[in-house]
Amino acid sequence: MTIRKGFEESLKRLQDDVLMLGSMVEEALVESVQILKNRDFDGSRRLIAYDERVNEKRFAIENSTLSLIALQQPVAADMRTLAAILEIATELERIGDYAKGICNINLMIGEGPLLKPLVDIPRMVEHARDMLHRALEAFVRRDLDTARAIPKEDDVLDNLYNQVYRELLTLIMADPTRMDQATLLLWVAHNLERTGDRIVNICERIVFTITGSMKEMNNSAQ
């Protein structure tokens, strides 16, 4: 096997690892909201423990990437791809933390029903999952158009967040005793809104990998 071919094989494996981490995080994120909706405390504890595996995977990706950089000393596009993998793995791990955060909130809310049926929060998580799925597809396929289009969809998440914020504020004003739970639910929406920002960061990295120029794509991402 030539050195180049060996490098390409290793890169392919690393990209598969990034997709795997992405799939783990996507699942955790969707499940965290489902768990909150079902008020499932065992599910929360299980998912909080699962975050350890997400972290392990992120460190494994980091180690493999650093070894590859040290051994192959890549340049130009190859180097940018490896740098992007490091960045994307970090962002994915942070999204995993948001899912864990939602599970913690479910435990903090404790027994009893939710203030209101969850309508916009499940919409937010579905949209975030879809954005993340397509962003990672764009990374593997080096699809510049998709990577540039996804950040624009972050506005949908921001609007849904604002809607949840207003709704919860109205509930608090009507009955201040609901303040505790309303604040916690707001954190759930906030975590999902931040997830959107992380996905925008991932897209910026993808554009950088392909074009070599770094450009902020959405001000709220920072």
Partner: peptide, 13 residues
């Protein structure tokens, strides 16, 4: 195609 790039399912991998 690799299993992961095709199915995007970490459990299968």
């Amino acid at each position: 195609a690799t299993l992961m790039s095709w199915t995007r399912q970490h459990q299968l991998q």
